[in-house]
C-alpha cells in the first residue's frame, strides 16, 4: 500500500514537469508580453522605461532562464508576484481556493443526491416513462451550457422575485447566511450539469450489474427488491461511477470557471480567466500547475477509495 502510494506520487513528477513546461512556453509564444497589456495602465512609457520595467519583471532574460528560476524559486515556496494584483501568487491562490473548493463540494453533494437515485430508478424501471424522464433530464443538462443557465437564473431571480445574489467574499463559517445565498445557485447549476453525465453512468452500470448472477441469487433467496438494489447492486455499480468522478474532476473545474465568472464568485476559475485576459503569466502558470496537482491527488484519493468499496481490488 505504502509503496503503491509512493510510486503513484513519483509518477506525477514527469506529468507536472510536462504541464509546467507546456504552460510556461505556450504563454511565451506570442511577442506581446505582460508589459504590452499593462500599457493601458502606464501610458506614455518610452522605450528606455519599457526596458527597465521589463528587467524589473524579469522578462528580459532568456525564456529557459525564466522557467528555471520560476521552478527553482517555486520549489522553495516563492511562486512570484502577480503583475496585476500586486500580491504574491500564493496569496492570490489562497484567497480564491476556498471558494472553489466549497463550490465543488456543494456541487458534488448535489450530484450525489440527484444523479444516483435518478440513475438507479432509470435502470430499475428500464423503458418506462420514468426511465425516459431520467434520460431526458440527463441529455438536457448535458446539452444546455451551465453558464447559460447561470445567466438565466440571475436575471429571472431578479425579475420575478427581486432577488439579487450578494456580491463580494463571505466566509462560510462566520457569514454563513450570505455565503450560502451567494453559493447555493451556482452550486445547484454546477451540480445539475455534473449530474447529467453521472446519471448516465449510474444507469448503464446499474443495468449491467442487475444482470449479474449474484443478483439473481439474491432475488432467488427471497430478498426484497429494495434490498437487492440498494445493498447488493448499488455497491458494485458505484465503482465505475467513482472512477468516472475521478477522471471528470477536470470537467467539474471547467464547468465552474464560467459559473464563477457569471456569478462573480471569488474563485480560482475567475482568477485564471482574469489572469489570462490580463496576461498575468505568474498567476496563470502557477494556478494551472496547482489545479493539475489538485486533480492528480484527488485521483489518487479515489484509487485508494476503491480498496474500501471493493475488497477484491488489490492496489499494487
Amino acid at each position: 500500500m505504502q509503496t503503491y502510494i509512493i510510486r503513484r506520487v513519483l509518477s506525477y513528477i514527469p506529468v507536472l514537469i510536462l504541464v509546467s513546461l507546456f504552460t510556461f512556453f505556450i504563454l511565451r509564444v506570442i511577442p506581446g508580453d505582460a508589459l504590452v497589456s499593462m500599457m493601458g495602465e502606464r501610458q506614455g512609457m518610452n522605450s528606455e522605461e519599457m526596458k527597465a520595467a521589463r528587467a524589473e519583471l524579469g522578462l528580459d532574460r532568456p525564456v529557459i532562464v525564466q522557467y528555471l528560476s520560476w521552478m527553482g524559486n517555486g520549489l522553495r515556496g516563492d511562486w512570484g508576484d502577480s503583475f496585476w494584483l500586486h500580491k504574491p501568487v500564493t496569496s492570490a491562490i489562497a484567497d480564491t481556493f476556498p471558494t472553489s473548493v466549497q463550490l465543488g463540494l456543494m456541487a458534488f453533494v448535489i450530484t450525489a443526491i440527484v444523479a444516483v437515485p435518478i440513475g438507479i430508478l432509470s435502470a430499475v424501471k428500464q423503458d418506462t416513462w420514468m426511465d425516459y424522464a431520467g434520460r431526458l433530464f440527463a441529455i438536457s443538462f448535458l446539452s444546455i451550457p451551465g453558464f447559460f443557465i447561470a445567466i438565466l437564473s440571475i436575471v429571472y431571480m431578479a425579475k420575478w422575485f427581486g432577488w439579487i445574489p450578494p456580491r463580494g467574499a463571505f466566509s462560510p463559517f462566520t457569514e454563513t447566511s450570505q455565503n450560502l445565498q451567494q453559493m447555493i445557485f451556482p452550486a445547484i447549476i454546477l451540480g445539475l450539469t455534473f449530474s447529467a453525465s453521472t446519471t448516465r453512468i449510474v444507469r448503464t452500470t446499474m443495468l449491467e450489474v442487475l444482470r449479474e448472477d449474484y443478483i439473481r441469487t439474491a432475488r432467488a433467496k427471497g430478498l426484497k427488491e429494495r434490498g437487492v438494489v440498494w445493498r447488493h447492486a448499488l455497491k458494485n455499480a458505484m465503482i465505475p461511477v467513482v472512477t468516472y468522478w475521478g477522471v471528470s474532476i477536470t470537467a467539474l473545474i471547467t464547468g465552474s470557471v464560467l459559473i464563477e465568472v457569471v456569478y462573480g464568485l471569488n474563485g480560482m476559475g475567475r482568477l485564471s480567466v482574469d489572469a489570462i485576459n490580463q496576461r498575468d503569466w505568474p498567476v496563470v502558470q502557477t494556478v494551472i500547475l496547482f489545479i493539475v496537482l489538485t486533480t492528480l491527488f484527488i485521483n489518487l484519493a479515489i484509487d485508494l477509495l476503491y480498496g474500501v468499496l471493493d475488497p477484491r481490488i488489490q492496489l499494487s
Binding site: 510536462l18 504541464v19 504563454l27 511565451r28 509564444v29 471547467t254 480567466v273 489570462i276 496576461r279 486533480t295
Partner: peptide, 22 residues
C-alpha cells in the same frame, strides 16, 4: 505521459491558455 499531462488540464482552462497565447 504527454497524453496524461493534457488530460490533467481542465479543458476550458487549457483552451483559454492556448487562445491567450495564440
Amino acid at each position: 505521459r504527454f497524453v496524461d499531462a493534457v488530460q490533467a488540464f481542465p479543458g476550458l482552462i487549457l483552451a483559454l491558455a492556448i487562445v491567450a497565447a495564440l
